[in-house]
Amino acid sequence: MSHSEAIAPRAQESADLPLVVGGHVLASRLIVGTGKYATYEEMARCLEASGTDCVTVAVRRERLVNTAGENILDHLDASRYALLPNTAGCYSAADAVRVARLGRELLRDMGSRSSEWVKLEVLGDTKTLLPDPVGTLTATEQLVADGFAVLVYTSDDPVIARRLKDLGAASVMPAGSPIGSGQGLLNPNNLRICLEYLKDGDPTYPVIVDAGVGTASDVAEVMELGADGVLLNTAIAHAQDPVRMAGAMRAACLAGRLAFLAGRIPRRLYATASSPDEGRIARPS
């Protein structure tokens, strides 16, 4: 390998394994939501800039008026992006299971390569959008039994995270902070424990931080801690310059992943000199 190849980011990236989740191989470790963009054109440019190859979509009633209106699928190349339907807005396990099945049917009807998976959300509260842990466990169990690969949004509680994995979730996706809040990773210690529990004896089990990202450093932080991926939406869609932020998220995800793989130095209370003590012309008094 030549020197230039050795330092090229591309060569470093290729040394990493792809993210495999729910039977799908994803080249990018960013999963990007498709909500809240000013226009579909801007959404498409952001997805491009983010480097993602997996995007989330929501399932909603088709409008009974203005049916000539645009559909998001007119602006999403389903051969390029794996579509991951969510159950956003569901406040019971039963509703989430219904929505998951409708999303699966939409994908099957499209002939999608990724029809048998779902991003499960069972929410407990409209103000915080925090997950209902009991409903989330119930829906996970039912959807796994129905053949779904369940990527499950949950809190950063390590005990619930472990129970979701035990029920057969394809990926456990702890929130960094409340959805759309932009507060970043509020409890790094809980995420550390989630990662330790979920990857114990199963190092490739995918743990994806879903929700709460505010800016690029939040993405880098969770990737440095060893998360396998990050799912975000608002931090790009509502940035002052969404396309530029999408590029920042891409870079941060790669940087954080590389730093995790490289292995950071331990934190020390006191300094350690980088220049040699030997040969100094003067000494500390």
Binding site: E62, N86, G103, L106, G180
Partner: peptide
């Protein structure tokens, strides 16, 4: 009768 819309 449902379809896909933008979502996170």
């Amino acid at each position: 009768i449902v379809t896909f819309v933008g979502g996170g």
